[in-house]
Design a protein around this nucleic acid. Structure first.
Length: 480
RNA sequence: CGGGGCGUGGCGCAGUUGGCUAGCGCGCUGCGUUUGGGACGCAGAGGUCGCCGGUUCGAGUCCGGCCGCCCCGACCA
């Protein structure tokens, strides 16, 4: 590679992002337009995300299942808003086994229709409710413009689908999963997301109400990092998901769906990355610590590697995800930069001096060069490292929160809003009308409502854009 | 789909108004010296210049068409 580092963020943020994703070995382009190859290091990160989300899904009573990739075209067409929303993005299979199919098959862009169909067969009684299902799957959406992890033609995600007896139960589920996503983003990914309700214009095709967690990226743009939808009875009516209640009355179910995708990896890259590359939160990092041995002579090499291996085994036993970089063909300096680019939270250096003193040098990825190195005793190192993981995790969340808050502004006038969204997020009274949102988008060069935050102070005021009555405030920002 | 940029060893690029054996850096292989912030020497391997057609004595270079990729917009997780 001509340049070993990445393009500085200030020079070209989009280029920086692409550089980091590729040079940190997360993903590569594929022969097919818009598709990506997730490389082992990137996939391990995804596995960590899956692990933490799945744990939370199970803890809230959900079970995993798997539904097919192909959906009959007619299913997609049953729900009017849904087909309108997804039709432009569908990949359609017209031939199979060399024969033209009687009915084209859609490669799932999302599975509400197919799962709705299955639910209609599974549910008869109120005793079958709630039905709480999740699936981990790939989906395909033929988007105009793609970017690694942020928007690819095929992507990996989880989609939760649930059915309930009442609106209240469905709404409670919708909010519960939004909470799960918020908790995951804040406590695992160290991203201080903003949970809230989507506007009429931004909500999911076919939903009663959509909720999202919105994350601020390093260029201040917003990224929708997860969504939770109350689908009302729209899909239940379309797919005949009915049950007999306690009074022997036949009723339609209330359903929800919610999803988080590989886009979360893009969110982590852009929420935490710096000009040296990736910075991973310890709780999700494939490697939480890397040991870099330093030596000159053959004897030094032997004693240093011996000590390094002992420390590696110690940390491994202590539950730390650790790797010992034994490469002989590159210098320690190269390794330092290499692992920094890959975002490993903690580097443990060990050289002849350390072996003699019974110490190691600890270098934190979350602190700036010059104030990130300390010496530590090998004795009690496991405890110290585990402690540091928590410190680094907390510090990354603190850094991201400070950055977010520095770019969040409450505004009281339209002029103020237009000014703020150039380099920040604006919180403003908003009537929620699509026409009004279109106007704001046109006047601001692309800013859209992100969501209505959950914690509203109440009251009523004039919409910042049109002056009509508004009951809530919404965040506005340019978004990915 | 509109605007911009780009296709030359694995990666990043140079290649003048067409000209002789297509170069450079990084990476890769071997040997030796190195190693506390991106090491160095020597010897090697690796190319139908995106594809098709045309102009010409001669095309990486000029012309036409096609394909692909990246970035910016409209659309979206």
């Amino acid at each position: 590679m001509a340049s070993l580092g990445v393009t500085p963020r200030s020079e070209d943020y989009a280029r920086w992002y692409t550089d980091v994703v590729q040079k940190a070995d997360l993903a590569d382009y594929s022969p097919v337009r818009g598709c990506m190859i997730i490389k082992p290091y990137g996939y391990e990160l995804w596995e960590a995300i899956k692990r933490e989300l799945d744990r939370r899904f199970k803890a809230t009573g959900h079970q995993n299942a798997y539904f097919p990739l192909f959906i009959p075209m007619s299913f997609m067409e049953k729900e009017a808003e849904h087909v309108e929303g997804f039709a432009p993005h569908l990949a359609v299979v017209t031939h199979g086994g060399g024969q033209k199919l009687d009915e084209p098959l859609v490669v799932r862009p999302t599975s509400e229709t197919l799962i709705g169909h299955a639910f209609s067969k599974w549910i008869q009684s109120y005793r079958d409710l709630p039905l709480l299902i999740n699936q981990w799957a790939n989906v395909v959406r033929w988007e105009m413009r793609t970017r690694l992890f942020l928007r690819t033609t095929e992507f990996l995600w989880q989609e939760g689908h649930t059915a309930h007896a009442t609106y209240e139960d469905a709404q409670e589920e919708t909010m519960r999963m939004l909470d799960v996503y918020t908790d995951f983003a804040v406590n695992e990914a160290a991203i201080p997301v903003m949970p809230g309700r989507k506007s009429e214009k931004e909500k999911f095709a076919g939903a009663l109400a959509s909720y999202s967690i919105e994350a601020m990226m390093g260029d201040v743009k917003a990224l929708q990092a997860g969504t939770s939808h109350n689908l009302g009875q729209n899909f239940a009516k379309t797919f005949e998901i009915k049950f007999l209640d306690e009074n022997n009355e036949l009723k339609y179910c209330w359903t929800t769906s919610w999803g988080v995708s590989t886009r979360m990896i893009g969110a982590i890259v852009m929420a935490h990355g710096d000009d040296k590359g990736l910075r991973l939160p310890p709780r999700l990092a494939p490697y939480q610590a890397v040991i870099v041995p330093i030596h000159r002579t053959a004897e030094e090499r032997a004693t240093v590697l011996d000590a390094a291996e002992r420390i590696r085994a110690m940390l491994d036993d202590g539950g730390v995800r650790v790797i010992l970089d034994r490469r002989d063909d590159v210098t320690p300096g190269y390794k330092f930069n290499d692992w920094e680019m890959r975002g490993v939270p903690l580097r443990i250096e060990i050289g002849p001096r350390d072996v003699q003193n019974g110490t190691v040098v600890l270098a934190r990825r979350d602190l700036p060069a010059g104030q990130n190195k300390t010496s530590a005793s090998q004795e009690g190192l496991v405890g110290r490292v585990i402690e540091l993981m928590d410190e680094i995790q907390a510090n990354m969340l603190r850094q991201a929160t400070e950055f977010r808050d520095a770019h969040l502004h409450e505004v009281n006038s339209y002029d103020e809003l237009k000014e703020v969204v150039r380099d920040g997020w604006a919180l403003a009274w908003f009537c929620g009308r699509p026409e009004c949102e279109d106007q704001i988008k046109a006047d601001t060069g692309g800013a859209t409502s992100r969501n209505f935050p959950l914690d509203q102070e109440g009251g009523e005021a004039k919409c910042v854009a049109c002056g009509r009555p508004a009951k809530e405030k919404a965040y506005f920002a340019k978004a990915y």
